[in-house]
Lab assay of single mutants.
Amino acid sequence: MDETGKELVLALYDYQEKSPREVTMKKGDILTLLNSTNKDSWKVEVKITVNGKTYERQGFVPAAYVKKL
């Protein structure tokens, strides 16, 4: 869990989004878990840094590609 009590997951593999509802992640990324009720895909939040500014983006990733921490 992070400092706000949200559950975290670790990306086990790289994943490139295939639709606007998904998010891209790299192996080793730590993501905030938002919903894990679907056995196939979990909703997560990723933090992306562009030019020194951090943005948050929500979307789905394959459940088999992440592990709860």
Rank of each mutant, 00 (worst) to 15 (best):
K6Q: 11
T32W: 11
Y55C: 10
T4Q: 13
N38C: 10
I30N: 01
K67N: 04
E45L: 15
Y65K: 08
G28H: 04
K27T: 05
M1F: 12
K53V: 15
Y15T: 01
T49I: 12
V23A: 03
V50T: 08
A64F: 09
T37W: 07
P62E: 04
E56V: 15
G52S: 04
Y65A: 14
A63M: 02
K27H: 05
V9K: 00
L69A: 03
E17R: 14
V50W: 07
S41V: 14
E45I: 14
V61D: 02
P20H: 09
K68I: 14
S41K: 12
K43Y: 15
K27N: 03
G5H: 14
M1P: 13
T24F: 03
K18R: 12
Y55H: 10
Y55T: 11
P62H: 03
V61S: 01
E3S: 14
I48N: 05
V44G: 00
K47D: 02
K26D: 01
K68Q: 07
T49P: 03
K43V: 13
G28A: 02
D40F: 13
K39V: 10
K53N: 11
K18W: 03
D40K: 11
W42Y: 05
T32H: 08
E7D: 09
G5P: 14
L8F: 15
V46H: 08
S41N: 11
T24W: 03
K43W: 15
V66F: 07
V66M: 06
T49S: 10
S41Q: 14
Q58C: 08
E45C: 15
K53L: 13
K39I: 09
I48S: 06
A11C: 12
N51T: 04
L12Q: 03
K27W: 04
V23Q: 01
G5N: 11
K47N: 08
S41T: 12
F60C: 15
G52T: 04
N51P: 02
E7Y: 11
N51A: 10
Y65L: 15
T4R: 14
V44L: 03
S36R: 06
S19Q: 07
M1N: 13
T37Q: 11
M25Q: 02
K6L: 12
L34Q: 02
K27D: 02
K18A: 10
E17G: 15
Y13Q: 12
T24E: 03
Y65Q: 06
L69H: 04
Y55Q: 09
V23M: 06
Y13T: 08
K47Y: 10
G52Y: 02
N38D: 14
K18L: 08
P62A: 05
T37K: 10
A64D: 13
G28T: 02
M25V: 11
A64H: 11
V61T: 00
T49E: 10
L69F: 08
I30T: 04
Y65T: 08
L31D: 00
L33H: 00
V23P: 02
Y15I: 01
T54N: 08
K39L: 09
K26I: 07
A63V: 06
N51L: 09
L10D: 00
K43N: 04
D14M: 04
F60N: 05
N35P: 03
K39W: 07
G5T: 13
L10V: 15
S19A: 07
T37R: 09
G5W: 12
